[in-house]
């Protein structure tokens, strides 16, 4: 029983990492209908920026965090201006590839700036590094911070989409961009805003996660794949779906590792995705958009 609870907990804490990445992907997709393949690199880059501010320049955490999030937002806006806005009429593969191009640039720049500093840069945790007891189980406090962070981000943005004007405009744009333009919504601004917001979430995620994951130029892609998978599993446009998807993947990985063998960890998530998509093509919490004829 203790084994199971340990595995479930570790699945949930790892899943929270994926969920945080997935949330940013979903926010972008919700408004624009595209997947930003540079999301992982935006996450990585903002993490390094936070490192430079906090560890490199010695800025206090409450100053470094907002600055890193602002840097993330700026990077997101830049991604929109370079690789999305001019390509709105292009086909989806060109769009995907343009963000892949941005990902390469960010990775290369990060390697040039930070690649020679260490193989993996350590980032000091905001919480105590000592494990604490949670009932019968030991946890690292930072893992709980990540889980909390994922839930907070999810709630904030769920409220944002429901309650604020900007959020409603984003949803209207996602629903039907033409109609949104007709009622006077400046859809281009909405797109920029959502790219920026998605990247800002990535930056916040990077700061929360860096103490656990360490920082290295090639970290983005692995997280992007898991985050993308979590987002699709949750239905691509649902924020609670993204969190649920992330946690599901984390738990599946942990259980496969604990009960079958650790060699099944990496593949288990993908097998589940293949099955889920065949059985339920719109993900767990996705809304079916299939037109009946």
């Amino acid at each position: 029983m203790l084994l199971l609870s340990y595995l479930l907990l570790s699945g949930v804490t790892t899943g929270a990492l994926y969920a945080l990445v997935a949330l940013g992907i979903v926010v972008v997709n919700k408004a624009t209908g595209v997947i930003n393949f540079a999301h992982g690199e935006l996450f990585m880059f903002s993490g390094f920026v936070a490192w430079s501010l906090h560890v490199g320049a010695g800025l206090a955490y409450p100053i470094a965090l907002p600055l890193a999030v602002a840097a993330g937002f700026a990077l997101g806006v830049a991604t929109d201006r370079i690789a999305f806005r001019p390509l709105m009429k292009a086909d989806v593969i060109s769009l995907v590839l343009a963000t892949v191009g941005i990902a390469f640039v960010l990775r290369g720049v990060a390697r040039v700036i930070w690649g020679g500093k260490a193989d993996y840069l350590a980032f000091p945790p905001i919480t105590s590094p000592e494990p604490v007891m949670l009932g019968e189980i030991m946890v690292i406090p930072q893992q709980l911070a990540v889980l909390g962070g994922a839930i907070v981000v999810m709630l904030i943005f769920a409220a944002f989409f429901r309650l604020t004007r900007a959020g409603k405009m984003m949803q209207a744009t996602a629903d039907n961009a033409k109609a949104a333009t007709l009622v006077g919504i400046r859809t281009e601004r909405i797109y920029t805003l959502s790219f920026g917001t998605g990247a800002a979430i990535a930056a916040a995620a990077a700061v929360l996660m860096a103490p656990l994951t360490l920082l290295y130029p090639d970290m983005g892609f692995a997280f992007f794949i898991k985050g993308f998978a979590a987002a699709v599993l949750g239905g691509l446009t649902s924020l609670p779906g993204a969190v649920l998807g992330g946690l599901t993947i984390g738990v599946i990985e942990a259980l496969a590792g604990g009960y079958i063998h650790s060699s099944f960890i990496e593949v288990s998530a993908f097998v589940v995705i293949m099955i889920v998509l065949i059985v339920r093509p719109t993900g767990l919490l996705g809304v079916s958009r299939v037109r009946r004829v």
Binding site: L7, L9, T13, T14, L212, A254, G257, G258, S262, I265
Partner: peptide
């Protein structure tokens, strides 16, 4: 004989085994 991926963020399963 356990396995851990280069990008792993958790080794609970491996450690327990």
């Amino acid at each position: 004989d356990e396995e851990l991926s280069p990008d792993a963020n958790d080794a609970t399963a491996q450690v327990l085994r």
